[in-house]
Design a protein around this nucleic acid. Structure first.
Lengths: 178, 178
DNA sequence: AGCAAGTGTTTTACTCGTGAAGAATATTCG
DNA sequence: CGAATATTCTTCACGAGTAAAACACTTGCT
C-alpha cells in the first residue's frame, strides 16, 4: 500500500493518519486538521489507559480509585467528598461509591465534621498511604518507559503544547457550550 | 526553578501543572515528567469529549455511534461487525448493541453474506449517509473553534508530536504488557 | 461422510458511571 | 422563632461497556 515508512528516524504510521486520509479522499473540501489533534489525543488516551493501568491493576486499584487516593496523598490533608469530586473531576455519586469500597478495604477513613454534620472528612489510613507511596514510583517508571519512544526534546515540547492547550480549554470551556 | 513561564503570549496555568507541583513537594525525589504528558492527555481527552460531543448530541448521536457511522462513510463500502469493531477500537459486543440501535433508527442496514452465513454486512442507509455528511462539517468547524486557543504553528507541532507518540504506542503496545 | 476445531456474531451477567430524587443538616430572613 | 431555601452527601434507576459463554455456521482432518 502507501507504506512509505521505515525511514531513518522511523516515523511510523499511526492509525489516525490513515483515517484522516480516508476522510479527505471522500470529502476533499473539508479541513480535517482538527482530527489530527483531537483524534490523536483520544486514541493516545485510550492506549495509554490500557497500558498504564497494568501496574495499578496489580495492586488491585482502578485508575479512578488511584486518583482519589492520590488526591489525598498529594494535598497532604483530609478532604471532603465534594472536594474529592472536584479534585478528581468526577461526580459526587462516583466518589461516594469509591469511598465505600476504599473504606471497606481499609485504605481510607472518614470522620464527621463536628460543626456541620452534613460534611465528612476523608483521610488515608497508614495502609492507604503506604500503598500509594509504593505504587507511585512503579507507576512513574512504567510511564517513562511507555513514553520513551519519543525523544526527550520532543517530550518537553509535547508537554508544553499540551499544557498550553489544556490551559485554554480549562479557561474557556465553561463558556463554550454550543 | 522550572516555573519560569509567563511566556510572551501569556501561558495560562493548567490544573495538571498544579497537581504535579503538589506531588513534587511531597516526593521531591520522583521524576514526575511523565505526568505532564499523560495527565494532560487524559485531561484534554475528557474536556474535549465534553465539548466536542455538543454538536453530535444535537443530532442525537453519541461519539461512539458517530465513529461507527463515520467508519462506514469514510471507507465507502460495507463492513462486517468485526471490521467495525477493529475500525472503531471497541469490543464486538459494543458494536452489536450500537448496530441494533442504529438499525432501529434507520441509519444503517444489514444483509447476510451469501457464502458464509455467519457474517453480516453493514452499510449506511441514505438517511445515515446524509446525517454523517451533514454533521461532519459542523463537527469540524466546532473542533476548529475549540482548538483555536493554540496558534496554527503550535497546532501543527502538536499534531506531529502526537502522531509520533501514537505511532510508537500503536507499534509497541502489544509487546509491553507489564 | 462425520466429527473436531475454528470463526463471526450475539447473548448474558456483571461493573461502573451518571443525573435526578431523597435525606439530613445549615442558613437566611421575614 | 421558624418557614423557605440552600448545601452536602447518599440512594436509586438506568444506560453503556466488557469478558466470557453461547450460538450458528464453516473448515479441515481422517
Amino acid at each position: 500500500m502507501t507504506a512509505t515508512n521505515g525511514g531513518p528516524t522511523g516515523t511510523r504510521q499511526d492509525t489516525v493518519a490513515a483515517v484522516v486520509r480516508q476522510w479527505q479522499s471522500v470529502h476533499p473540501d473539508l479541513d480535517t486538521a482538527p482530527m489530527e489533534i483531537i483524534g490523536r489525543i483520544n486514541r493516545c488516551a485510550a492506549l495509554l489507559q490500557q497500558a498504564e493501568d497494568a501496574p495499578l491493576r496489580r495492586a488491585g486499584l482502578s485508575r479512578p480509585e488511584f486518583d482519589l487516593l492520590g488526591a489525598l496523598r498529594r494535598t497532604g490533608h483530609e478532604l471532603t467528598p465534594s472536594e474529592l469530586a472536584r479534585e478528581t473531576f468526577s461526580s459526587g455519586a462516583a466518589v461516594t461509591k469509591r469511598l465505600k469500597q476504599l473504606t471497606e478495604r481499609g485504605l481510607v477513613e472518614r470522620r464527621g465534621d463536628s460543626r456541620d454534620r452534613r460534611v465528612a472528612h476523608v483521610r488515608l489510613t497508614d495502609t492507604g498511604r503506604d500503598l500509594v507511596d509504593g505504587i507511585l514510583p512503579e507507576q512513574l517508571a512504567y510511564e517513562t518507559t511507555v513514553l520513551s519512544g519519543l525523544a526527550p526534546r520532543g517530550q518537553g515540547e509535547l508537554a508544553a503544547l499540551l499544557g498550553e492547550l489544556l490551559g485554554e480549554l480549562e479557561g474557556r470551556l465553561g463558556a463554550l457550550r454550543g
